[in-house]
Write a protein that binds this DNA or RNA. Structure first.
Lengths: 212, 212
DNA sequence: TCGTCAATTACCCTTTTGGGTGATTTTTAA
DNA sequence: TTAAAAATCACCCAAAAGGGTAATTGACGA
């Protein structure tokens, strides 16, 4: 059984090329192709395709919105984003919105077909440049947490504060006196250069000083 | 010029298979292969390989540590993780630590060689299962922020609280009386089901109720 | 061995927080 | 137009937070 496709792509030449390529009478069958995704959700409900190829930069309504609209009405539809853009924001927005793959337009035909196949098998195909962006994203996100020279005990108490405990509860949890808790928090505030508990909590969470 | 390789893999059979496969006299050249990565950094400095294939589950010292050690002394070395594990934590830790690719051991030889080539060209090859985990990670991370029915004003005041402002400062910033600020915060705490400011800040940041 | 530092406790004091109740006005939705 | 929701302000009051100072103990390294 061939995989049925819908194509949303505003470039006439490219859209027709895709149709020719993917109407191979074997593995793929193009149900319809459109030059914009204004009626993306409706067309998907009408044709019930296995997979959608979605350009991003289209007049009227962006492919990202088309993606969201389709996933909202028929989540099982696989959607491969197909674009010249490798803008970081765009990539992450699409992935978060449920895209099943992200391919750049210079992908060679054989690789494109392999990627569509991979998506149908539950994979998440992406172009190497996209994979690179994702790897970079993670490295960026894991920049070393600044060290404010908090002692273990101080980290423990800060942790309890973040959990929503008052001074008294922290004292009870740690089996120490209320005054000791206050003393520790005073030191913590000084070390973090903050003036109160809420600010300390905000800073600790933002800068990942403690485990969440 | 063939790509020079080092291999760290504790399974004898697999290690020898990799050597046979990759000593093809054309594209790849295996400089040496080891059954543990205790001396990973030293061997890399000695052999100066273009690329390292690193198993994760090895006796004595895990491949993740080997990865970090190598990247610490010779960051230009490409490192492909090669493992049976597709544990989420492991994957993300490796990516953050600078891995250039992440392949599962059942990768077919042709795909493995293509992946090594891709890594040498600056790509970030990964097995489909790994790509899937990454896509899932992003979707997870962007799960819809729970709506606690906070009004705009309440969000604004919560935001100021997170910034470390006391009640008085919030009142001044918003040009409203201290009592109004108190009233708003009381309502906020009720809506968020928390009992104090620190807990509200923690919840707001953890659940991304407000922009950071 | 001595000095330093973390952890602990205590006491004093003021300000801030947070909860309760109630009321007015404005905006929004039905 | 009327009702509900949001925003505003006020007053009372107890508890909590936060800052200062000082002292003791134990561990660890110079």
């Amino acid at each position: 059984m061939a995989t049925s496709l819908l194509i949303f792509e505003d470039n006439n030449q490219l859209r027709q090329s895709l149709q020719l390529l993917l109407n191979d009478g074997m593995f793929f069958s193009v149900k319809a192709a459109f030059e914009n995704c204004l009626r993306a959700a409706e067309e998907v409900l009408l044709h019930e395709p296995d997979l959608v190829i979605m350009d991003i930069d289209m007049p009227g309504r962006s492919g990202v919105e088309g993606l969201k609209a389709i996933k909202a009405v028929r989540p099982a539809t696989k959607i491969i984003m197909f674009t010249v853009f490798d803008d970081d924001e765009q990539i992450f927005e699409c992935i978060c919105a449920g895209a099943d793959g992200y391919l750049l337009k210079h992908t060679p035909p054989a690789r494109l077909m392999a990627a569509l196949q991979e998506a149908m098998e539950g994979g998440s195909p992406m172009s190497p440049q996209v994979a690179n962006k994702i790897f970079h994203y993670f490295r960026q996100a894991s920049k070393p947490a600044p060290d404010y020279n908090l002692s273990e005990r101080e980290k423990e108490i800060l942790q309890l504060l973040i959990k929503g405990n008052g001074y008294k509860m922290i004292a009870a949890e740690c089996f120490i006196s209320l005054d000791t808790v206050k003393k520790h928090l005073k030191n913590i505030y000084t070390k973090l250069h903050v003036s109160c508990g809420t600010e300390a909590v905000a800073k600790a969470l933002k800068e990942k000083i403690v485990a969440v």
